[in-house]
């Protein structure tokens, strides 16, 4: 475990905690894309299939449980909670996310480290995570006044992947044979997708103005 990876995991944790607290405390999910949340729940479900069969460390197991629980709780809140569900911006969250799932599944079948069920699911989850933020970014472009917590959620979610890229660079130079093309390429694509969001987020933060994403 290196500092970049730990910082990345903590940043990822902060992003889901920020979102969960926002939804739980103000009972609102305005500006949050349910599709992105569903995609993330699917990412964790597909990636952590080895949760009970392959023990890496206590930290690893605990974090997997936290990410699984938080992502499914958020989806539950947005679908089932009588107050929160009414604040869901249904008419703007229209990204057809099943168009994302199928290509990622096909890619997982074609490009994986080993053609076993778990490995195909793992590769699928890596590709899916790379594009899972798209519905949320599209929704932000359509949302007039983006509330800070949602913007912070997206920012931390992007920041964690940037830190992971540093982690991969570090591990590449410190561990022999540490080569994971699938994670690396998908991780870089994922980070690039946040590119313009980061630009406008930092710009709004610097000029101390409300975050606006050009449509």
């Amino acid at each position: 475990m290196n500092l970049f990876r730990l910082a990345g995991d903590m940043t990822h944790l902060v992003s889901v905690v920020v979102l969960l607290l926002k939804i739980h405390t103000i009972k609102s999910c305005a500006g949050v894309s349910l599709k992105t949340q569903e995609l993330y729940a699917l990412v964790f479900a597909a990636r952590y299939l080895d949760l009970f069969v392959h023990f890496v460390s206590l930290y690893n197991t605990v974090m997997k449980l936290v990410f699984l629980a938080s992502s499914f709780t958020i989806v539950w809140y947005m679908r089932r909670h009588k107050i929160v569900r009414r604040t869901y911006d249904k008419e703007h969250d229209t990204f057809r996310h099943h168009f994302i799932v199928l290509p990622c599944l096909v890619l997982g079948l074609l490009l994986n480290e080993k053609f076993t069920f778990r490995e195909v699911m793992w590769a699928f989850s890596i590709y899916l995570e790379a594009v899972a933020i798209l519905p949320q970014l599209v929704l932000l472009q359509r949302t007039r006044n983006i509330d800070n917590l949602t913007a912070q959620y997206v920012f931390f979610l992007g920041a964690y992947r940037v830190l992971y890229i540093f982690n991969w660079i570090y591990r590449y130079f410190t561990e022999p044979h540490f080569v994971h093309w699938i994670s690396w390429i998908a991780g870089i694509v994922q980070t690039l997708l946040y590119g313009d969001f980061f630009y406008y987020y930092i710009l709004s933060w610097k000029n101390n103005v409300k975050l606006e994403l050009p449509a």
Partner: peptide, 10 residues
């Protein structure tokens, strides 16, 4: 190559 690939990252 071991049966399962070692994924030690989240």
């Amino acid at each position: 190559k071991s049966e399962t690939v070692e994924h030690d990252e989240l």
